[in-house]
Design a protein around this nucleic acid. Structure first.
Lengths: 163, 163
DNA sequence: CTGCAATCGTTATAGCATATAACCATTTAC
DNA sequence: GTAAATGGTTATATGCTATAACGATTGCAG
């Protein structure tokens, strides 16, 4: 593990978990786009198809919630998957407002291939961490996300207070 | 710690450390903008001023490297700090190409206040983690960032190979 | 000493992800 | 029967990041 170095020029920022997350996130963007680009994906289209492939019949509103993105922003993402025939939007006969989303066989194949490539890269990101340490990292990130969501809902709390 | 749940609809994505990082990052954006906004900062201007305040005399190219952002993108960030008098750009007499960056007293005060508020929120992000666990998380994120940088430089490696 | 490469900072531009407002069609609840 | 809620969409804006090109200045090799 790489311990923080208090003499670094950005030591004040490095004490923030949030900054570590932002830097780790930024550092992988280029590579992730490159890997996914080989399969015709962007990060958002890959994530969407990954969830759709695992959950046939999912609705757009459900998918937006799962991915934590706005429903208006999902429209073009799904257009970009539907156009090359990777997903279908099928009207729910029981609720004509909604679509049931489905990956096509080609979509299933394509996302499985991209997933394998991305997982290999993801393993590379954690060289030097044991499997339990990797699992702990994933769980800790999940905790941060949950805490952020709770904090957002508790707007009256001091750290987000506007008073 | 929140362990992964294999029956979740996005379980395939949740196995990726990268996805956990992206979600944790996204989840705090709104709150961070709101907190920093109270002090007249955005995320990028806050980070820049934080590093400048700790390192008087820093050059723009050095700052860009430290923050891992492009030098062209730094120009407007520094403009936005210089305009309200939070920093100064002073020509290096020994190299008239370069500026030496300095926080003004107002800049030092403003960034210290914002730092305190952001640290409080950052502590909230890690409720449920002990201090050693928080330190381990920061170190693990650093490792991920370093691995990503190494992988980017080793483009011939399989996981980023274009062959 | 000269010429060229490198460095520093800048301008211009483009793309992606995200946020917000408003709208229409349909369903649900009272 | 009516109004509120839901599902999806269109339109628009903002911030962050990436890239190309440029001018001024410095450093290095011959």
């Amino acid at each position: 593990m790489t311990p923080p170095n208090a003499t670094e020029k950005d030591a004040d920022l490095r004490r923030l978990v949030g900054y570590g997350i932002k830097r780790a996130n930024s550092s992988m963007m280029g590579a992730v786009e490159q890997i996914l680009g080989r399969f015709g994906f962007r990060r958002t289209t890959f994530s969407a198809l990954s969830v759709i492939a695992a959950n046939p019949g999912l609705r757009q509103a459900e998918l937006a919630d799962l991915l934590a993105i706005g429903r208006p922003n999902l429209v073009q993402i799904l257009d970009e998957l539907q156009r090359p025939g990777l997903i279908e939007r099928v009207r729910d006969p029981e609720d004509r407002r909604a679509y049931m989303l489905r990956a096509t066989p080609d979509g299933d194949t394509r996302v499985a291939q991209a997933s394998a490539a991305l997982m290999a890269y993801d393993q590379r990101l954690t060289w030097g961490l044991s499997a339990p340490e990797r699992a702990t990292l994933i769980a800790a990130l999940r905790r941060v996300e949950e805490n952020a969501a709770e904090a957002w809902e508790d707007k009256d709390a001091e750290h987000l207070s506007t008073s």
